[in-house]
Design a protein around this nucleic acid. Structure first.
Lengths: 156, 156
DNA sequence: ATTCAACTCATTCTTTCGGGTGATTTTCGC
DNA sequence: GCGAAAATCACCCGAAAGAATGAGTTGAAT
């Protein structure tokens, strides 16, 4: 129960919920009322609209979120004042992938695994996998060491 | 992209199909002549649903877009010149004792509780007590947050 | 001498981390 | 289309961390 819904479970529930909502809306929309209060049509429409917009927003964030970090990595750093360019060099040398860097950034904020998972729209298991790989590549044992090392390497 | 569907896409469509099937079966069960008379209503609903989802996705993208810029600005900020001595001010204001500061310093190095205990010649329980007090005074929940806050406050 | 803050340590309990393994899915280049 | 790398997710298990208490010990300052 402490574990979140799996993707398949979520999608199944989504399908069921969507069907139910469609059913409700259709019943309300049409005048074929057999178990629907017909004067609540507007409320139903508002509910439908809200749910669909929410789903759309979620989908939008879900699909656009991974691009954020990747763009961060790809965009050349304009700073060059203090840190010349430790970013790409170190990243490539250590073999840190864009997704792993994203986890590392969130990690440096002091977020927990669950919070990182929420930020990046993945499961906590995925976060743990990325972290394990990061610990290997950064040659550290703990997350606090990882934060420290990422900081001195200019990765965050 | 125009190739075969990914699993997620397939499951989404499956969810949609499942919902639609449920809807249709219920419709047929409740009122079979509905299909004959105005089957245009369901198409209309599907269109509405599609529009709402599209709007939601668009809104989601609008919201995530500024995040890109924001993070791009925030990320390239390196560790610039640190203030020489904001130390005592903050320490007294937060009521951090010398012993707690010692723990905090070791903590920022990425040491574990046992290692900190070894460094300071105290038991692990004592370290945990100091840390608990530090978390309260620093107003943080986790040790990584404590490290981050101690760093921005110039305590380490 | 008494008050008080800091320091110390313990116990119990819950949550979170991390290691290890295996698997599927997605992406991307060739 | 194929293969490799990347990404995702699950499961188990032990270790570490943290929350919530209670309590004993010091070393001043009043």
């Amino acid at each position: 129960m402490t574990q979140k819904l799996t993707k398949i479970q979520f999608l199944l529930l989504y399908g069921l919920a969507l069907g139910s909502l469609l059913l409700l809306s259709l019943m309300a929309w049409s005048n074929y009322r057999f178990m629907v209060i017909d004067h609540a049509t507007e409320l139903y429409l508002l509910l439908i609209a809200g749910v669909f917009v929410s789903v759309g927003i979620w989908v939008g964030l879900r699909w656009s979120a991974p691009t954020i970090i990747e763009k961060m990595v790809l965009v050349p750093m304009p700073t060059s004042a203090v840190s010349p360019e430790p970013n790409q060099q170190v990243l490539e040398h250590l073999g840190i992938s864009p997704r792993e860097l994203a986890v590392l950034v969130q990690l440096s904020k002091g977020l927990s695994n669950d919070e990182i998972a929420g930020q990046l729209f993945v499961s906590t298991n995925t976060v743990k996998t990325h972290l394990a790989n990061l610990y290997t590549k950064l040659d550290v044992k703990r997350r606090t060491q990882g934060v420290e090392k990422a900081r001195v390497l200019g990765l965050v």
